[in-house]
Amino acid sequence: MTIFLDGILGRKRVLVKANERVLALYRGEILGIFGAGEHTLPNRRGMLELERHDVNRPAFVSAYEKPLFDRLPELAQRELTVFRTNAREVAVVERDGELHAVLAPNQKLTAWNAAGPWTETRVDLAGGLDVDPELMRRLTRARRLELVTAFMVNDGQVGLLTVDGTHQRMLEPGLHAFWNVGRTIQVRVVDLKRQSLDVTGQELLTRDKVTIRVNIAAEYRVVEPLKAVSEVKDFADALYRALQFAFRQTLGTLTLDQILERKVTVHAEAAEKVRADMAAIGVEVSAIELKDVILPGEMRDILNQVVAAEKQAEANVIRRREETNATRSLLNTAKVMAENPVMLRLKELEALEAIAGKVERLTIHNGTAGLMNDLVQLRDK
């Protein structure tokens, strides 16, 4: 009966749930926004239109948003909150204390007041692009990092901040975050600790036209980071090439024998030039050393033969010297025995003792005196 009566009177009963809001239009005009409950709305000729919204989805998205604010501004403000940023702003929107959205410049969010309460934090990008550390932690927890770029600078390092290709400042160790809206942000991390650089397998031609390969080492550290990255494309590569040139100058003036006979390092003048050139780009070079000299295979064989011949000659000299000393010693002993018969008799007894120690049994005839006489007669003969 009620439905029949509503049909005759040209009206319709609309039930709105507690979590809903209904935007109603009649004959193309906005009637209003209706909350939870039952509402009787005009519907002659079926010209009532209803647009239901679930406030659990906080954003208000409707084709009738602008007509609503134009025709019923008080109602719209009572039901909805509009967050809007200009060209130089970022807005952080929170819902009931929880981060809900981050608005980029020239962006808008319309939200149901019933889904709130809502709060807003605006960031003026003209005052700087840095993101507050606490806000950064909240953005990370909420996984709202699409407008943020973060960089980590470790101990012993420094970061060079560049915005749209222009250097801004140096960053100390720590986590740094920046708003990246409409900007190109880069941070180049430069290590300030002492480092080593090896130039390995560098081929050089000595003064006597022998091709060798050398390994070179140097220690350096960056003392002016901005100079080091702005004056040259790659400061480590610049040092590498400077070392190559310095050792070509040094070893190219020496023969292979000179290089092998003494510990060769870079000339003081060449080393000073390397240090001066690198200091001009903010790099301090300390030690410069020649680590290894590597010879071609055939040259190694020749040198091994030369060394072997030299050692053999030295061994022959030592052998002849020892033989001469032994002969001289025998001659001196013979002279002493010739002049002293007692000494000769002692040597004879030593010989007899040595012979007796090598046989199991020794038989002596005519007694020891006879033996001695025979030995003496043997010597006389």
Rank of each mutant, 00 (worst) to 15 (best):
T2W: 07
L5I: 10
G7P: 02
I8R: 06
K12F: 12
I30F: 04
A36G: 01
L41C: 03
M47I: 05
P58E: 00
A59F: 01
A63I: 06
K66P: 13
P67E: 06
F69A: 06
L72T: 03
P73A: 08
Q77S: 15
R78P: 01
V93P: 01
R95I: 00
G97S: 11
L99M: 10
N106D: 12
L109Y: 00
L109W: 00
A114K: 04
W118G: 00
V123D: 01
D124P: 04
V131T: 09
P133K: 07
E134N: 15
A142N: 04
L147Q: 10
V148W: 01
A150I: 06
M152K: 12
D155L: 12
V158I: 12
T162R: 12
V181M: 01
I185N: 05
I185G: 05
V190P: 03
S196Y: 08
T200S: 14
L205F: 03
D208P: 06
D208H: 09
R221Q: 12
D234E: 12
A238F: 11
L243I: 00
T255N: 14
T255L: 14
L256Q: 06
E261F: 14
A270H: 05
V274A: 02
A276Q: 15
D277G: 04
A279T: 03
G282Y: 00
K291S: 11
L295N: 03
E298M: 04
N304L: 10
V306N: 07
Q312T: 13
E322A: 12
E322K: 09
N325A: 13
A326S: 07
L331C: 03
M337I: 08
N340S: 08
K347S: 14
E348V: 02
I355Q: 07
E360Y: 04
L375T: 03
K381R: 15
